[in-house]
């Protein structure tokens, strides 16, 4: 009887452990999803802001997300904002290049924004060639570029006419 009881206890413990593991996995999965949203900021423009360190798994996730959003929103321009990425090294740059190539094959142009001066220095020193990709310092400049690419522009309303 005691042995049986022990067995059941053990079984319950393992089940409990498995549940905890499942919950953790679920948590990390939803965290990954949360960390890379794709926003439709304008007709035919999607924005993907990246915050935090980019590892291979996340890069893959971001790439898939970006491409899916291009297809879903039928976007012509995708803005990849890297303001929140602390370090951009060769690996991250490689992922960015791949994403841009894939997006181009789908018929969309990618604008990289928020490249910090430090990142620009590192990339140049590492001889990473991003010259074929359009990059902008700020999201603002990137948006302007995106608008130009879809052939529209935002300008202040003429106050004089209304009043």
């Amino acid at each position: 009887m005691i042995e049986e009881g022990g067995l059941i206890m053990e079984k319950e413990q393992t089940q409990g452990a498995a549940q905890v593991m499942d919950a953790r996995e679920q948590e990390s999965l939803s965290l990954i999803e949360l960390s890379t949203p794709a926003l439709k900021v304008w007709d035919e423009i999607v924005l993907v802001p990246i915050v935090g360190v980019v590892d291979t798994k996340r890069a893959q996730q971001i790439m898939e997300n970006l491409l899916k959003s291009i297809a879903e929103y039928e976007a012509r321009v995708a803005i990849l904002d890297v303001t929140g990425v602390p370090v951009i090294d060769t690996r991250v740059a490689h992922h960015i290049t791949k994403t841009v190539t894939a997006a181009r094959m789908m018929g969309a142009e990618v604008v990289i924004t928020g490249v910090s001066p430090e990142a620009a220095q590192t990339l140049t020193k590492l001889h990473v060639d991003l010259s074929s990709i359009s990059t902008r310092g700020t999201l603002r400049a990137g948006l302007k570029e995106a608008f130009a690419l879809i052939g529209s522009r935002v300008e202040p309303r003429d106050e004089g006419v209304d009043s």
């Binding site: 790439m63 491409l67 976007a75 012509r76 894939a102 094959m105």
Partner: peptide, 22 residues
């Protein structure tokens, strides 16, 4: 499709010099 674009990039078989649209 996104999956197709991903696969081609992973294979290193990009469509180069071809005009594309969504």
């Amino acid at each position: 499709r996104p999956e197709v674009a991903l696969t081609l990039v992973e294979m290193g078989r990009e469509l180069t010099g071809v005009e594309t649209a969504v």
